[in-house]
Each structure stands twice: as structure tokens, then as C-alpha cells.
Design a protein around this nucleic acid. Structure first.
Lengths: 194, 194, 194, 194
DNA sequence: CATGAATGAGTATTCATTCAT
DNA sequence: CATGAATGAATACTCATTCAT
């Protein structure tokens, strides 16, 4: 049975990746089950074998992205090093996700409208955990006297907000490269924590 | 004719206010014409007497809020005074709108999905103008050597993003009052411009 | 009271002419009361002072055109002359109406779908009378041995059908002028009655 | 796959036949998707599984009838024989369609109002082809000196118009049988081509 | 007489979801 | 497991008609 279970998992992941792509272009309500299915040359019906309903699919898309981003941040944190460098790397990771997984990140930002209570609880837990990783590095910085913040949580909120907003205006074809962007953001964010 | 025209305008405004309220709870696609109508004890049909279609109604909601916010910021800028005080007042105004007119502000953030080209052009013009008001005060601050920023536009983006994010987490019932929030945000934002 | 009655009649006629115009472009169901009204710088509401409902308006449009065409044919018949010449003139009149009042003529062709029983009865009476005028000239021609037809009514149907079909293909911008068209049709139709 | 495809085709044809029936009674705008569906004991939703929208359904109804009529005429033409006999058979076929598929034939007559550009192009091509079949037999007749016509296309228009008009007045319950009708029409039409 | 505001029934269309095969 | 056919509830939008002012 393990083999078939794995097959299912792989298929699920395929669907998630495809769905994430579409959500990133059309948003939650703009995404139809039909479209997700046809992108993978399946039929709508089959989708329902893997996911209970649309909400479930969306929820798992969300979790998928957020879990991955969380893992990335966690390994950065674990690697350790000078706090400012660590934070810079975290900023880079976060902004990259915000730009590349735009809509799925929006799902993260605005989960209330789409998820049911049970899902919501888990989503918020994950999200809090994710945001907590930033708290952690800030705390670490404060302890070694490199960062200063009276209300570290507020500072973190400001930092997250600043970073998420990137997707509203940043265009890869524009004047700034993604690297420039990240450097500028890192500098400004460090100022907030001075 | 003036009387009846005024009546229409007042009715339109009533509808807008009501619609804004619903949008702020349910978002664009979650809001149905039916609901907007019944909230005002009208029928769907009547709504279409005042607004061409849903997109038109949403568009005017958006304009209504953004125009008002723009007016507020403009009068703050005109009143003049020490740049830091002016900026603080602008921050206060913006955050207040962001919290109170949550979804309509979201419409402002993500207009591309909802508006047609013609509307979009105007919306973006308005939005640019609005954002430009922040550029103006930053510029003023730089000129009098109170603010410093290598890339003032990026700084402004960061500031706007930080402020808009407020609606994602701020709850009036929480630990912080709106006044506390605004004070904290002002302080952090000023640090960005140090 | 006579003055005001006349005023009403004149207004009614204005409305009819305007409505006929629109029907000729958009057909019965494509024509809205709104459009008819706004063409005359009135409001929908006022229309209902002059006409009971849409069906009534359409009905009177129809009568207006058909009555006029009938009058034209009758005066041609009364004027008398060689039957072939009379028939030619009638053909000219009919084709002109068929081209210029296209849709209203279609109303005449297909009245059943739009009119209620009471209206229908009158419409059919008018239409029969109109068609009877062609029977009359055919009969006259048979009596003077210029026309021959075993089943004159069928011949008349064929003639009418041939003429009405003109509107399906004739374009004023095309190769043939209206005069050419009428000449050709007259010749062919006379062949039918040979 | 062939089996299921055939099933779909059969179902589509069933729907078309049913829709054609309703269109023939109520016309294009008088026909609602609801009614077409309920006639077949389906729901509206299912209809949209087979046809993209109302316009598409109507278009396919139209094509269905016209294609069938075209095939009939073509095989008559291919069979060959004396031109007058061939033309008579064609007249019989056309009149039969005009009477039995009344409204669908009307769709053919007035396609501009109902079809979009893309559809219209195909419709007009089909219609031209269909009308061309009459040109062909007329031409054949002229070549063997059995028919005479200065302007064969105009003659064809007159013939088609005469035949289409049948549906305006012919009632199966009336004095004339369909056979009588066809005989009479054939005789008159041959006179046109004398 | 005229208006304009309101209405409500109707219509096309979409889409998540189900289920027999 | 997969499919495709069916469903039904939801939703935007239209328009003839009414009526108080």
C-alpha cells in the first residue's frame, strides 16, 4: 500500500503546484476547479478524489507554500551567524515568496474569508509560527544589542507589512532588479531596528 | 432640476456608504448586488437605476473613499507646520482609513482584478496622486534636512506597506488602542526616514 | 378640447415615427421603451400616457405603416389605367415600403408572435385588405385578358413573397439601383401572370 | 472514446431537435434555455454542458437544418435528370423545409440579429452555398435552352422569396394539400424561367 | 401632462459538487 | 481510480410597467 499512497501524495503535490500557479494569477474566487483540473489534463471529478472540496484544495495550497517558506526560514535561523546577516537572508526569502507566490501569499494574508473555522485555526497557527520566526531573530538581535525595539512585535508587523507590500508595485521589468530591491529593503528594515 | 439632482446624489451616496460597508466585510466578489440592495430596503432593480453594473458600483465606492482620503491628506499638507508633525498627521489619517475602510482600501490595493481598463486608468491616477502626497512631505522633509532617504520612493513604499498591513492584524479590542498604534507607527516610520 | 386632442394625436404620430425607426433597426424584442422615449427626449413614463403598453405601441406602429401603404395602393388603383402599368406602380410602392420600412413590414409578416387576439384580428383584417388590393388588380387584368392565372390567390402569394424577400438581400449600395430592381421585379412578376 | 463521443453527439442532436421545435413555435428571443431544458427533462445546467451559450445552441440548430436541406438538394442535383424535374424536386424539398422547420428557416433568413461575426460568416457561407444550388440548376436549364433569364440571380431571389413566403399563409388544414401547393408553385416558378 | 424613481418577474450564465459507470 | 454527465443554487443584469408627486 505504501507505493500507492506515495503515488497519491505525488499526485496531490502536482495538483497543488498547478493550483498555486492559477491562484497566483486569478485569485481565490477567480480560480475554478475546472481550470485546475484541465491544467493537469484531468477532469473536475478526479480532483474530488484528492481533495474534499475547493476550500480544502485552497487550504492545502496555502499550507504547502507557507510550510515551505517556514522551513526555509527555519533553516536560515538554525544556520545562525551574525543577526543582521540572518535577518537579511530572511528578508530575501520572504520577499522572494511574496513576489513569486503572490496570490498564495495573499491567501495567507487574508485567510478569514475563505477558510472554515477548523482550517482557520490551523492556518493562523502556522502563520503565527511563521511570523514568530521573525520575532525570534529580532529577539536574538536585541539580546546581543544589535537591534533595539520598544515593541518588537509591532516592529515585526511593520517589517512584514513593508515586505508584503512589495507585490503591489514591484515589476521585474522595472528599474530595480530583485537584488537591488532586497538590498534596499534590508537597509531600511535595519534602520527600523536600530 | 437642481433639487432632484441633489436627491439622486444623496441617494447615490447612501448606496455607496452601504455598499462600502458590505465590501468591507465580504470583499468584492463576496458582495452581491442583492445584498447591497436589501441592506437599503431597495430591490436589485433600483440599484441598477443608480449604477450601471456591479463594477461601476464598486468603482464608485473605491473612488469615494480614496477621494475623501486624498482630500484629508491634502488639507493636512496645506495646513503646513513642522514636517514631522505633518507626516504624523498623515500617518494617522491613513491608518484610520486602513482600519475603518478595510476592504475598500483593499480594492485600492488590488484594482487590476476588478476594474476595466478605463476605470483602471483613473483609479491608478488617483492612487498615484494619493501616494504622491507622501512623496511630497518626504521631499519637504529632505529639503529642510529633517528626513534622509537615498531612494525616497522606496522609503515611501515601505511606509505605505507597513501602514496598510495594520488591517491584517489590528483588532480594536486588543491590547493597543488606535492612538497607541498610531504613535508607535509614527515613531518607527520616522526612524525609516532618519 | 379639440385643440388638445389634436396635440395628443400629433405627439402620438411623432412617437410612432420614432418607434418605427427603431423597430426597423432592432426588431420588436430588440426595441425597448426606454430607447423609444429617449429618442424623443421623453421619459419612459410619458410613453405610457400615449400608449397602453409596448404591445399597443407596436400595434399602432404596424397599423400606421400598413394603413399608409394601403392608402397608397388604393389611390393607385383608383387612378386606373392599363392594368400592367397599375400593377407596376403597386409593385414599386410595395417594394419601396419593404426596403425602407423593413422591420415594420416584418411585423406585418409575422404578427402572431407579438399581438394579442384582439389586435391580431384587426391586423389580419388590415393585412387581408392590403393583399386584396393585389387580388383586385390581378382580377381586373384577368377580366381584360391581360393576365392569366388558374389560382389567382396563389399567384398573388407568390408575388408578395417574391417582393418581401427583397429586404433579405437588397443593399442600396450594391450593383442594382432601386429603380433597376423594381424594373426587374416587375418584368418577372408579369411573367407569372402571363 | 468513440462510444462516449457518439453518445454526446446523439444527445446533442436530441437537444437540437427539441430546440428546433421550440424555436419553430416561439422564435429566437421567445425561446428560453429553461424551456429547451425542461422539454428534455434536463436542467438548464446540463444544457450548458453541451452548448456554450444560447447563441451557440441557436447557431447549431440553424446549421443542423440548413446542412440537412443542403444535403437533400445536393443529392437531387447529383441524381440528375431533366432540369425541370430536378427543379421541381428542389422546390418540393425547399417548401417542405420552409413549412415544417418554419422558425429555424427564419433564423436563416435573418441571421444578422442573432449571430456573432464568426458565426455569421459561416452561416452566410452555408446560405450562399445553399442558394447557389438553385443557381446551378437554373444555369443548367439555360444551357440546355429550357430556362431563360436575363438576370438569373434575380430570378433565383424571386423564386426563393416566393417559396419562403409560403410559411406566412399556408395552413395544412386549409383547402390546399401540400402536394397541390407544390404543384402550383412549381408551375408558377417554371413560368418565371420561361 | 410629465417625470423619475421603484419594482419584480424573467433570463442567461457560472460553478462547486455529486455519482453512476 | 477516473470520468463525464448532471445538477441546482447563486448571481448579474434587463425591462416593461406602475405610481406618487
Amino acid at each position: 500500500m505504501k507505493l500507492s499512497e506515495r503515488k497519491v501524495l505525488r499526485k496531490k503535490e502536482q495538483i497543488l503546484l498547478s493550483a498555486i500557479n492559477i491562484i497566483n494569477q486569478k485569485g481565490y474566487s477567480g480560480t475554478t476547479m475546472e481550470e485546475v483540473a484541465s491544467e493537469l489534463l484531468m477532469t473536475k471529478g478526479s480532483l474530488y478524489y484528492y481533495f474534499k472540496n475547493k476550500s480544502d484544495l485552497m487550504y492545502q495550497c496555502h499550507n504547502f507554500v507557507l510550510s515551505q517558506a517556514t522551513k526555509d526560514l527555519e533553516s536560515i535561523l538554525e544556520d545562525g551567524g551574525p543577526v543582521k546577516d540572518v535577518l537579511k537572508k530572511m528578508i530575501e526569502t520572504h520577499i522572494t515568496y511574496a513576489i513569486d507566490e503572490k496570490e498564495t501569499f495573499n491567501l495567507i494574508m487574508e485567510p478569514k474569508r475563505f477558510f472554515n473555522e477548523e482550517q482557520l485555526e490551523l492556518v493562523l497557527k502556522l502563520r503565527n509560527h511563521y511570523e514568530g520566526l521573525f520575532d525570534e531573530i529580532i529577539q536574538r538581535g536585541i539580546e546581543v544589542d544589535e537591534f533595539h525595539a520598544e515593541e518588537p512585535k509591532i516592529a515585526r508587523m511593520i517589517i512584514l507589512g513593508a515586505m508584503n507590500w512589495v507585490q503591489q508595485w514591484y515589476r521585474p521589468e522595472g528599474r530595480l532588479s530583485k537584488e537591488d530591491l532586497i538590498t534596499l529593503y534590508s537597509d531600511y528594515i535595519l534602520k527600523i531596528l536600530e
